[in-house]
Amino acid sequence: MTLNTQPNIPEPDGFYDELIAAHHGLTKDQSDALNARLILILANHVGDRAVLRDALKAARP
């Protein structure tokens, strides 16, 4: 499997809304913690180490 960087989420504006809404009313610390939990949950769902490595690479500035 390779990392899919093509559009893959149906109705992307709706997802983006939900992502931002998930942080609503949280302090910076709480938001950081949420992001960390979210990354771990999604990473576990992906599972494939090669894909995760590619994702880490793609995310690096």
Binding site: A33, A36, R37, L40, I41, N44
Partner: peptide
Amino acid sequence: MSKIFRNAVLTLARDHAFA
């Protein structure tokens, strides 16, 4: 950030086997 992730793992581990 390392501490944020460490504590995220500990929080998730209570309810989620994967962590």
